[in-house]
Design a protein around this nucleic acid. Structure first.
Lengths: 181, 181
DNA sequence: GGGTACATGTAACTCGTTACATGATTCC
DNA sequence: GGAATCATGTAACGAGTTACATGTACCC
């Protein structure tokens, strides 16, 4: 399906970037909520995209002599990206989730172990949610205008917060179930 | 991390199973909400687990002469599983989500395309949610007792419904944002 | 001079999917 | 007899991680 390909093409559409810049984007607070890749995956993909005629690059000298490759998208790359972006695909399978897998097999735990398991996850999810909420509060005083980059940023951040909220709500429900009995 | 290994060990702990049975479990309505694997991944893993001494199997004849391998867990396998189950691991990275990725780059779409994109996803998510809710309503009149297999089933089903609910709520929020402007 | 960030790559490996391949059983 | 399901496997490939490997630039 080559998702990484399209993630890279879309990032480079916004502005010319190096492989290093793309790697940083994948570790940023918005993108990492739904996609990421290591540099060891990105560099080979960039090479492949150039070979396929979807990207070009020029060498830029940083400082004295350090070479970096600044990638830009080609017309062909842009067309390919737009086609992919507006495709209507079937629903993805539900995401894998190790925590839910452990929870599913909770009949193999003691009640104390199950409780600890749920409480520990609740704490971690709360920290993650608070971090996301902090970003939301600092960057967005109101909802950005549609069709701006910021509106996309806003939507996925909002989605990430709601996802964590729902996870926390679920954990609380489970904890309540086991303490009520 | 060998998650598949532990998923298989846990399933076989409940009762002796063939590779075919395990494959069916991974396509069932509860397990597939957070883990799954194809038979082409399961059979080699079973062979590996026998080699590692965590599983054993006996050949059972079905009908006239068809051989099937019925796997059971060993003591070593059981110990290994229990240790893994109660481990407290750091939070997993947020799951990858192609729909969110497309949404993030919505500034490259027209407003109509973005709207279609959101509405289409909303419809699909609603169908999925209704299916899950139907299962919930048919199987669980009340919350099962803790430490039963059914309680694990209930918790993850409840979690899956809440996850879809939250996704739907997010989509509605986004749709509202773009129609208000 | 030293530490951190910038910058780019490769190799080995694990995980997961798609496709190929085969045969028995059960039910109509 | 035919179709759906039961049952088990392998091969090739693609996706992703960890570790190895190297060198520059910038700031203190």
């Amino acid at each position: 399906m080559r998702i990484l390909k399209y993630a890279i093409l879309a990032l480079i559409t916004r502005e010319a970037m190096t492989g290093y810049d793309i790697t940083k984007e994948f570790n940023s607070n918005d993108l990492s909520n739904f996609w990421y890749a290591k540099h060891s995956q990105i560099y080979p993909e960039l090479r492949k995209l150039v070979k396929e005629g979807l990207l070009t690059y020029k060498i830029v000298i940083q400082g004295e002599k350090m070479e970096k490759k600044l990638y830009s998208i080609t017309d062909k790359g842009h067309r390919d990206l737009l086609e992919w972006l507006t495709q209507d695909e079937p629903l993805e399978p539900s995401p894998k989730d190790v925590f839910r897998l452990r929870t599913y097999f909770s009949d193999l735990m003691t009640p104390e172990e199950l409780n600890t398991h749920l409480i520990s996850q609740l704490e971690k999810r709360t920290v993650r949610k608070n971090n996301l909420q902090y970003i939301m509060d600092s960057y967005y005083e109101s909802i950005p205008n549609i069709l701006t980059k910021e509106f996309g940023d806003y939507m996925v951040l909002k989605g990430a917060i709601m996802r964590e909220d729902s996870y926390i709500e679920w954990l609380n429900h489970c904890i309540l179930c086991i303490t009520d009995k």
